[in-house]
Design a protein around this nucleic acid. Structure first.
Lengths: 189, 189, 189, 189
DNA sequence: CATGAATGAGAATTCATTCAT
DNA sequence: GATGAATGAATTCTCATTCAT
């Protein structure tokens, strides 16, 4: 029993969208997974597109919120800020693997609306802020921040996916190695 | 006029799959884009699933072939081999952006068959070979190759996507910076 | 208004299959005749083939049930048993002419499944039992029962079809004459 | 190699129509079976409907011709005429089982044109003539000829089908038994 | 509020027919 | 004449959405 059908629906949708994609997922399938009637979904979301956008925004919200929790101040050393970012991201990837997979595989989809895209860009801005500050300090390499973000984000999404799939073991050495690799990718040499 | 309808269909499918995904693309839409009748598609491909698998395998083939062209021998220095890989990958990303986007967004899809998955893993093996040799020589950092591959591949796919989208300018400095970043991510420090 | 859409669909299908055959009948045509949406048919039957098999089995069930209703015991005289069979068959042919036409024109079709064929053979077994007993008593002529069944069944299906078509009048003299003819065809002389 | 593509097409169509019915048979399937191109069929027959009507009429022609060959004169004893009919019909059923199955399963089809129906009725007229003469002589029972024809024709089609299917062995005793049964069905008692 | 049966527009696929070679 | 690749209308089937209960 759950105290909230809306949440049940979003969780079911997340699970299915992450696995089969938006277009590969039917509304009745979401209803079944959520253990609600198909019609119930339409009491909480105007239609399938509204549902996917709501879900996307909530997922990005969670990810962004996760990264900001207990974050060092803007005055803290970049390396420390990056470490916090990495730890949080890695926790999120571990605890919310479906959300990360869903965000990643739907991020450029045509059915995402203005608000969804805006929300995702705001999330990227957090990273951008850190990198821009680092470049000002000469600690981060001078490539465009958008390029650096794309690389770090792309690298992390992918590497946590192979971890989730069990291809490699998520030991603390591995995580340290990944953090080092990412840091080396963006720091000035 | 084209000398080959099969090619027209594959190109149309690539374009649409890359943009809207497999499930978001209708067969008549492919037919229209390819300027053939809808029924014609079924003369060349048994069904939509066979079409997407054929396309996937051909794209991976192209990518792998591209990376192998004029590749330095296995005895060449790792840095040189990596450079060649990067240059080829960047050329492919530039000339075949849709193929790269298509591969990337469909690589784990449930409708891909055994052969498609096998073909993609063979492509990854090429990278693995280079990294494993580098680790033996102590040049590449000791994280599992699957993790390093995921990071480099993820970083490159993503960064070339933002380049394609015009977010950043593909200057030679940028490309040098990206290559350096990727190399720094995987080399031993 | 009917209390059961499944029944509406089966009746519509029976009517159309009897008239135009399985392959000559489209699903939307059945839907229209049944006054339901085309999609509704698929809520009740997995596909067109399942529909035709369900219908076939139900029709054979009705025919067999009809023949068994108030049937004389296996100890009753063969002539009496045959009379009962004939009367029941003739009533069925009169009241369920479409069912009889449908069964007859689809009985050997390739799309009928194991269960459908089995059900029809069970129906034939009822006749076979009567004829075999008659042969044991020397009342029925010694040709193989399968041949006698084929003849009687073939003769009756065909003659009731011409009656239904209005080619001949279904007077009681006619029915008596047909019963006599069939009996004469199978009795020992 | 055959000297006549038209014949090849008709034979292929006969074989397929007999097995799967008109609507269940595709024109390309006929072409393949006939070892001609699909387009070739349209050089000999305007369309599929013309093909099936031509075939139907040729088959009925063959059957009627078969029954008339060496037929006793109208003055010959009815029993002798019936014997000849039975022998010829049985030969036809044996040598042209597909033609008989095809005629039987398509005889009332909606796509048969005027000429096809007319041709089939002319065939029935041959039987009718014999039975009417027999009734005049008091040898044949007084049921309407159309009913008697339906019964005899229905019985024979069905019984030769089970013989063809190997359910019963076509011994000369069996054939004699069948002939006797049919004769007993229609003679006056 | 919640449901799930019902719907029909739209998707994948087939096939009778045409026509350039 | 013969072919079979190409076609698009028609067919089977799916699914987002509605609405009576």
């Amino acid at each position: 029993m759950s105290n909230n059908k809306r949440t049940d629906i979003l969780e079911a949708a997340l699970s299915l969208f992450a696995e089969r994609g938006y277009d590969g997922t039917t509304v009745p399938a979401i209803a079944e997974q959520a253990k609600v009637g198909a019609g119930t979904i339409y009491r909480y979301f105007e239609n399938k597109e509204v549902l996917v956008n709501s879900l996307f925004q909530e997922c990005v919200e969670q990810l962004a919120g996760s990264l900001l929790t207990d974050a060092p101040s803007a005055e803290a050393p970049i390396r420390e800020r990056f470490h916090h970012f990495f730890v949080r991201f890695s926790q999120f990837a571990n605890g919310h693997d479906k959300a990360l997979a869903f965000i990643d595989s739907h991020v450029n989809a045509l059915f995402l609306d203005e608000a969804s895209n805006k929300r995702f860009n705001e999330f990227l801005d957090v990273l951008r802020g850190m990198l821009d500050e680092g470049k000002r300090q000469g600690i981060i390499c001078p490539s465009p921040s958008d390029a650096l973000i794309a690389m770090v984000y792309g690298a992390l999404v992918r590497v946590f996916k192979v971890i989730k799939n069990g291809v490699v073991e998520p030991s603390s050495e591995l995580l340290q190695g990944i953090e080092e690799s990412c840091w080396n990718a963006i720091r000035a040499h």
